[in-house]
Amino acid sequence: MEILEILLSASFWAAVVRIASPLIFATMGELICERAGVLNLGIEGIMVVGAFAGWMAVYTGTDLWTGVAVAAVAGMAFGALHGVLTVVFGLSQHVVGLGVTLFATSSTYFAYRLALPEVTSPPRIAPFEPLALPVLSDIPILGPALFAQTPLTYLAFGVVGVVAWVLYRTPLGLALRAAGENPAAVAAQGLSVTGLRMGAVIAGSGLMAVGGAFLTMSAFSSFFFEMVNGRGWICIALVVFGAWRPGKALLGALLFAAFDAFQIRLQQTAIGEGLPYQLFLMLPFALSILALVVMSRRASVPAALMMPWRKGER
């Protein structure tokens, strides 16, 4: 009965959408990279960079949207680093990605200490406020869940539409997908595989950073270490879960968020009394792995994912 109560409450669904938002940004970012043939394991670190850069920008006096832009640009810089190493030099995407994550994370902490040497508890900023859309937000349950969110959440859903449109409806998207399927086919048409993949990695990394910025600028109002907490890795799984399609990846993000919101509430019920809370924290991950197994059986991986492209090689 308590479970039913949880599932029928507007606050539960609002939490689902809120928790999903950063995942949606980062998942779309990763999806763009992978569709072009580059696995971007820098995602975790780039989210940390975004979380810090956006927050720091606002803390030093810019407005919130400029902060988002600063976060995106910072993420793109690390994306460019990833791209130069994996696309231009053709190095191992696994090693480079993990390296970028470590480098991005540690340089963020370094920058944090440089900027705030004497602070024990991180300063707060004024985050994005929820923006209730007129009329729509009055719909029962759905209204407060979907239409009383912060502007960044609306942006996240908008990004899914844009990514889907670009990938499937524009010549650029076609070229990008082809670069991830068979770079030789792209090169044979005289397009630059390097350019396309670099572009995808940089743009995708920008989105990942905005996902990170959501955490400091919308979900919480402050930056602290470990705040990204594996969300980047979840997004990698969500891309697979979504079979490299934006719409399905969006569903995956919502599903994961639902598990997460559900376990928090479950802990406070009678069921949660006797059980260690770590068990509940585990729940969304365990269920995600299960869902991944079920869903991604027949997913078609971009055929050239993780395959470096070198021009003029036999």
């Binding site: 524009t170 010549p171 650029l172 076609l174 070229a175 082809a178 792209v186 048409q189 005289g190 397009l191």
Partner: peptide
Amino acid sequence: LIGTEPLWRLRA
């Protein structure tokens, strides 16, 4: 169609 159209177009 790959590569036959300018990349920066809103529709194929």
